[in-house]
C-alpha cells in the first residue's frame, strides 16, 4: 500500500474531567516517547486544539478507578478507543499504543526518511527544468500543465540535485543542511550563486546527466579493451566522485553510483525532456 493511502492514528493525551493530571515531567517523557515512534499527539489542556477529522482516535488517560469512558463519533465515521495508562511509564505507554496501532491497522511510521522536493509556488515559474532534469519520475504535471511532485518516494535520499537546476531557487528540501534549499529566505546572492552553478554545469557540457553519460561512455570504451568489470566500476566511481566535487552539487556518492546505466540514462532523460516539452507546448497553446 502506498504511504499516502495509509490511515494514521491520532492520539489524545487526556487529562480533563474523570482523569488524573500528569505532572509536566511525565507528560514530557510520554510525548517524547510517542513522538519518537512517529505518532501525532494532541495534548489536551487550556486552549483550543485542532478539530477532529476521520483519523482513528486513541484517547489515553489516567482514568478514575481505571474505568475508561465509552464514546463514539456521532457520525460513526471515527473509531474511538480509550486506554487507561495508570501505572505505565513512557515505555509501557508506547508498547500499549503499538498494540493499538497494530489492531487498528493504521500506519507504521519511520520506515522511510521523508526526503522529497517541496515546491515554493511563490517562486516557481513552471519552466519545467526540474521535470526535464530528474531521471526518477519524481516530477510530473497536473491537468493544467503545472509542475508538481508526483512520486515523492522515488526521490533519492539526501540528493538535492534538482534544486540546483531550478533558476528561481523554488525547490526546497526542508531537511537539507543549508539555505536556501532548506527553505531559508532566498537572497539575491543565493540566486546568483545557484545560477552560477547552472552555468558551470553548462560549461562542463550540459546537464549533470549529460556529463555522466559522456564520462561513462569514455570509461566504457577504455575498459572494453581491458575487459575488467571491477576496474570499470572502480573508474566509474572515481569519475563520479570527481564530477560531483567539480560541480559542487552535493549529490551523495551512493546516489551517483545507483544511477541507471548510460543507455538507460539517455532513455530516461529523453522521456523526461519529452514530458517537459509537451507540458511547455500545452502551456503555450492553452
Amino acid at each position: 500500500m502506498a504511504i499516502a493511502d495509509e490511515i494514521t492514528l491520532r492520539i489524545v493525551l487526556y487529562e480533563g474531567a474523570g482523569a488524573a493530571t500528569l505532572d509536566a515531567a511525565e507528560r514530557g517523557s510520554t510525548l517524547t516517547a510517542l513522538l519518537g515512534k512517529g505518532y501525532a499527539v494532541t495534548c489536551a489542556g487550556s486552549g483550543a486544539v485542532a478539530p477532529a477529522d476521520d483519523s482513528a482516535l486513541l484517547v489515553l488517560g489516567r482514568f478514575e478507578n481505571g474505568q475508561t469512558p465509552e464514546a463514539e463519533d456521532a457520525n460513526g465515521a471515527v473509531p474511538i478507543r480509550f486506554r487507561d495508562i495508570d501505572g505505565l511509564d513512557s515505555e509501557g505507554i508506547t508498547a500499549l499504543v503499538e498494540e493499538e496501532r497494530k489492531s487498528t491497522q493504521t500506519a507504521q511510521h519511520g520506515e522511510w526518511k521523508p526526503w522529497f522536493p517541496v515546491i515554493d509556488y511563490d517562486r516557481c515559474t513552471n519552466c519545467m527544468q526540474c521535470l526535464s532534469f530528474c531521471l526518477f519520475d519524481v516530477y510530473g504535471v497536473d491537468d493544467e500543465q503545472e509542475i508538481q511532485v508526483q512520486n515523492n518516494d522515488n526521490c533519492k535520499t539526501n540528493c538535492p540535485a534538482c534544486s540546483r537546476v531550478c533558476p528561481e531557487a523554488a525547490i526546497m528540501f526542508p531537511k537539507y543542511k543549508s539555505g536556501p534549499i532548506n527553505g531559508d529566505v532566498v537572497s539575491d546572492g543565493d540566486l546568483n550563486r545557484e545560477k552560477m552553478k547552472i552555468d558551470i554545469s553548462a560549461l562542463l557540457g550540459g546537464d549533470i546527466y549529460q556529463m555522466l553519460r559522456d564520462r561513462s561512455q569514455r570509461s566504457r570504451s577504455r575498459f572494453s579493451k581491458e575487459r575488467s568489470s571491477d576496474k570499470a566500476l572502480g573508474e566509474r566511481t572515481k569519475c563520479l566522485t570527481k564530477l560531483a566535487a567539480e560541480a559542487d552539487i552535493d549529490i551523495p556518492l551512493e546516489v551517483l553510483q545507483s544511477l541507471p546505466s548510460a543507455d538507460e540514462i539517455a532513455e530516461k532523460s529523453a522521456a523526461a525532456n519529452a514530458k517537459a516539452t509537451a507540458a511547455l507546448a500545452a502551456q503555450k497553446s492553452g
Binding site: 499516502a4 513522538l35 512517529g38 495534548c43 489542556g45 526542508p174
Partner: peptide, 20 residues
C-alpha cells in the same frame, strides 16, 4: 498547561498527504 498538538515530523505527514 497549554493545549497543543505535537507531530513527529511534518515532512513525513506531507509525504503521506496525511489528511491531518
Amino acid at each position: 498547561g497549554q493545549a497543543f498538538e505535537a507531530v513527529a515530523d511534518l515532512c513525513e505527514m506531507a509525504a503521506r498527504r496525511d489528511p491531518a
